[in-house]
């Protein structure tokens, strides 16, 4: 696997020998190493329970929320060891979008977008705030739909709009990397298409890592793909190459639908 890291020049994010265990000795992710290319969409796919979400959540240390989860290994962000950063700084640089849209229910659309600044007590002039909100909402192509109802609660939006709002919230900090954990699995096909188009557009500015259950989604929008199986990173490479000519037999079996 180490050869694959070398393939990717100047990775924005470099994962080295990462293992995560929920119970002592049982690894949900074992010894994964990979580099993530800047301004590309990298998809992590694999069958249920293969550790793809666990890997993703290790990147911004969401596992710290739960005391019995143990993480070993190193992750470098722009060459800097993330273990030396505080969780707070790390999560500002690495944004995250979840499986189910989860706007803060008591906050307006405007406040949801600016929530990262507001909750962290970062004070700004109103003009600056307005600019960030407008830019973030324009980034996720939601601005035209909500610009007249910014003071309404975020939960009034449709599911697809809510998910784009959550993406806008993650983008408000201008993160280096955006992590998406099956962002379209709770959405209908039309909303899914919009989010997918959005991700292709967003990679011009951001590096995107996408966990997906859906092979064709990975094929449609990702530049690089990882295939994980039983916690192991089986194959990692350019999406085109992997789908046409998988190296590992397990990847081939997964892609051809022998198991899922």
């Amino acid at each position: 696997m180490n050869e694959l890291i070398k393939q990717i020049k100047d990775p924005v994010l470099s994962i080295q020998n990462l293992s995560v265990s929920y119970n002592k000795g049982k690894y949900a992710v074992s010894d994964v190493s990979a580099g993530i290319k800047k301004n590309r969409v990298t998809a992590i796919m694999g069958p249920s329970g293969c550790g793809k979400s666990t890997l993703l959540r290790a990147i911004n240390r969401m596992h710290d929320l739960y005391p019995n989860i143990e993480t070993i290994g190193q992750i470098f962000l722009n060459g800097e060891d993330t273990s030396t950063m505080s969780n707070i700084m790390l999560r500002r640089k690495i944004g995250m979008v979840f499986q189910h849209p989860n706007p803060f229910p008591t906050m307006s659309i405007y406040d949801n977008v600016i929530a990262g600044y507001k909750l962290n007590g970062i004070r700004m002039k109103k003009a600056e705030r307005d600019e960030i909100v407008e830019k973030s909402l324009k980034d996720v192509v939601l601005w035209d739909e909500v610009k007249d109802s910014l003071t309404k609660k975020g939960t009034f939006l449709s599911g697809g709009q809510q998910q784009r709002l959550c993406i806008a919230r993650a983008l408000a900090f201008r993160p280096d990397v955006v992590l998406l954990d099956e962002p379209t699995s709770a959405l209908d096909p039309v909303a899914t298409k919009k989010v997918e188009e959005l991700l292709i557009e967003l990679k011009k500015q951001y590096t995107i890592i996408l966990v997906t259950h859906n092979m064709s989604q990975a094929a449609r929008i990702s530049d690089y793909s990882m295939f994980m199986y039983l916690g192991e990173l089986v194959e990692y490479g350019k999406t085109k190459n992997m789908f046409i000519n998988p190296v590992d037999k397990r990847t081939e079996e997964y892609l051809t639908g022998k198991f899922s």
Binding site: N60, M62, L65, N87, I88, M89, L90, R91, R92, G95, M96, F98, Q99, H100, N102, P103, F104, P105, A115, G116, L119, N120, C166, R169, A170, F173
Partner: peptide, 13 residues
């Protein structure tokens, strides 16, 4: 739980 996680993911103490 996801509401809590959304806050965590924004780096909020």
């Amino acid at each position: 739980e996801t509401i809590k996680e959304a806050g965590m993911a924004l780096g909020v103490p």
